[in-house]
Design a protein around this nucleic acid. Structure first.
Lengths: 257, 257
DNA sequence: GCAATAGTGTCTCTTAGACAATATAGA
DNA sequence: TCTATATTGTCTAAGAGACACTATTGC
């Protein structure tokens, strides 16, 4: 023990310049949906949004930034990000994923800071509760398209771009769409969510492929009530639509097969 | 300017405990191939290997570890990793990719260190030159299967596992296979490389799929000589095989289509 | 009946998957 | 000729892609 302590203190006796902090920044995405004003039932308009906060202190005082904070020695980066997420949005237990580190010298005027970037996907229904509590002037959801054009603090513009690219890729290759959907949803809702995140997405025979092709149909299963009958919803349509839920099945993708 | 400096010094006046360094560790993979001793021409035996170094100092003195080093304030993590890679292997300009950060408290007895993990893919022909120069006792390639069973320094066992999972996924979804192949190669070589990294991989009609199905044939193109004639190789076979090269085309993958 | 969404029929062309068969050339 | 790899033939079932068509139900 003494040996170890001595070694350790020997080691850190100022031979190296050390970082001035270990920040974690979080790109919090949500999909806002707005009922369209129409006499008939119709699908809502959906929009991908990102949560930004207005900085109160130097540097970049008054500018918008990604939520984040400093990690302490006694927690992992993930725990730090979870803590920040809870503070900013009041939500826990949601999809939170580390995706990159930002280490460009000079990226932070406060000193040498390597930022650890996470993205989080939050269902708007869970975000809604919290929003009323906040000072709307300091914490705000922005449409992603708009946020990308804003001048953000630090290199947060680049972080946002990277996060968006990542969730666009994952939206098509994993089942993260479920983060933006209720437990049970219709095929149209799923399609809309995918389209909202990846505007280029187009799949003419979507319903058929997802429900009846052998290689993919394992992704979803029909929702059934306690009697085992199929559950339908007519929330967005005159004709009731079948409700589905995600299974745990995740097809393996390959460019070679 | 003065204002900024004053703010900065104000900021860092010991309010937070700061990390004791910013290390980058690199998981360097290569595929070693060994000609089989057979009278007839036959495909070599291939094996995925990882480069480890034996630690000379406390902590974990004498144990094997991933190569790595401390990042300086004036470089990015990538530059740091590139520098380390050059020092350990003598190679530059190869596939180097950041994949995770390791921040478990207590992971490094020297203090609070968040390790930034990269993986690198090196063609054995480029590694061969360097190996003679090194003291074989301190830098060594291990079969990955063996390295996974060794007790490595720090949390390098976990880092190695994660890196392996990542390149297995990427082997099937991107064209990183080319990192382990010469510019021009035969279909069998490509198949072997994929199989070496992902043992479960099996594709009965591989040659046909990769060369003649519409959705995938863009990945490869036939190699041709200056006259425009097809180039063949009989290095591994009696009957000469068509040589191919990767194009820049990268199919988009989706679980929904 | 109209509007708005849900879902099916149908047709053609391509691909998957399994195996057998043929091709090539050095030893 | 034998051996080891390369490449094509063939057949069936499944899927892709396009579009027209039917279904449902509140207004």
């Amino acid at each position: 023990m003494n040996q170890e302590r001595e070694n350790a203190s020997n080691y850190s006796s100022g031979r190296y310049r050390t970082p001035d902090g270990a920040p974690a920044d979080i790109v919090i995405f949500t999909i806002a949906s707005e009922e369209r004003k129409s006499a008939k039932k119709s699908l809502p308009h959906r929009e991908l949004q990102v949560l930004l906060i207005r900085r109160k202190n130097w540097p970049f005082e008054g500018m918008w930034a990604l939520p984040g904070g400093f990690c302490s020695e006694s927690e992992t980066l993930r725990e730090c990000a979870q803590r920040e997420l809870l503070e900013e949005t009041g939500v826990e237990d949601i999809h939170l994923e580390y995706f990159n580190a930002y280490s460009e010298p000079g990226r932070d005027p406060r000193g040498w800071m390597i930022s650890h970037a996470f993205f989080a996907l939050v269902n708007e229904t869970r975000l809604a509760r919290r929003r009323a509590n906040d000072d709307a002037a300091d914490v705000k959801l922005f449409p992603v398209a708009q946020a990308l054009e804003m001048s953000l603090s630090f290199d947060h513009g680049a972080i946002l771009r990277d996060a968006l690219a990542r969730i666009q890729e994952q939206m098509l290759t994993t089942t993260i769409a479920k983060q933006f959907l209720p437990e049970e949803f219709t095929i149209s809702e799923l399609y809309q969510v995918i389209e909202t995140v990846v505007p280029e997405f187009e799949e003419k025979n979507f319903i058929r492929k997802i429900t009846s092709t052998q290689s993919r149909k394992g992704i979803l299963e029909e929702a059934r009530d306690s009697d085992g009958d199929l559950k339908l919803s007519n929330r967005y349509s005159q004709r009731a639509a079948q409700l589905y839920r995600f299974t745990n099945y995740r097809p393996k993708l390959s460019i070679y097969s």
